[in-house]
Amino acid sequence: MPAIEILGLEKTYSVGFWRKRPKRALFPLQLTVEDGEIFGFLGPNGAGKTTTLKLLMGLVYPTSGSARILGQDWNEPAVKAQIGFLPEQPYFYDYLTAHELLEYYGQLSGVPAKQRSHRVNEVLHQVGLPDVKGLQLRKFSKGMLQRVGIAQAILHDPKVVFFDEPMSGLDPMGRHEVRDLMDELKYQGKTVFFSTHILSDAETLCDRVAIIHKGELRGVGAVEDLTSSVQGKIEVIWQGTQIPAAMKALGAECHVSGDRVRAIVDEKQQDAAIDALRRERQQLVSITPVRTTLESYFVEKLRRAETTAGKTV
């Protein structure tokens, strides 16, 4: 059973003074996230990522479509007890301490009273905030609030966790810790659905990703599949600092770095490149195909979308 099934969710807002102008924030979206996956929802700012998450959380109502989470209707309270949500740039009741806030959220999520206090301490420790007792949230930094946000999302041990830009506001160490936490959640068998525009995070963490742009889904697939397509180029590395003239004649892009030279050549020129290095008695270190990064796949998808939109206009 998939953890999340988005069945044509669509959102159109009415904007303008008389609310007569329709503005489509999300085109009908079909997406399935399997149980136990870390799923990255990628897109530039304003692409529709937060709208999708708000629809799934029942904070905004869809113009059409529906969704199922853990096989049940997504708005059922029983489902909400099994999901955790971290909104983008979260803001909490700043007159409370982190312990009081999590105690309150634990009450609302139905965490049994006997376990609540222990669980609160456990998650605060897990997100790296073990010593904040007595400190009101109004005195927390942005990064600390983000950690509290993550803590409240996992407090009730949910089966599916939704994170909206979880790395936002965190320093490199914090980002590293959140990545570890997501891996830990996956290890515990939970499904993690997170939106981000930081592609390196997605590439490191995700089993699968979806790319959304201007409210439309542009691509979805396993990270390995998306990045394994060979670009038709190879990378040749040899020992030394000299670039043979024959290599230049092949049109190779060469860079000297320390005592090694790195050259990118067309894969059709592979044999000619090796011959050129042999002739000049250069010591070959490696030959590897150049693969697409998630970033280049992402950029290409968005460019293609822009071109299509331009032609339509």
């Binding site: 029942g58 949500f85 909104p87 909490f92 409240q152």
Partner: peptide, 12 residues
């Protein structure tokens, strides 16, 4: 202040 988001995403 968006404090509602983390309340209404629970079984409330």
């Amino acid at each position: 202040k968006r404090t509602l988001y983390t309340v209404l995403s629970r079984p409330v």
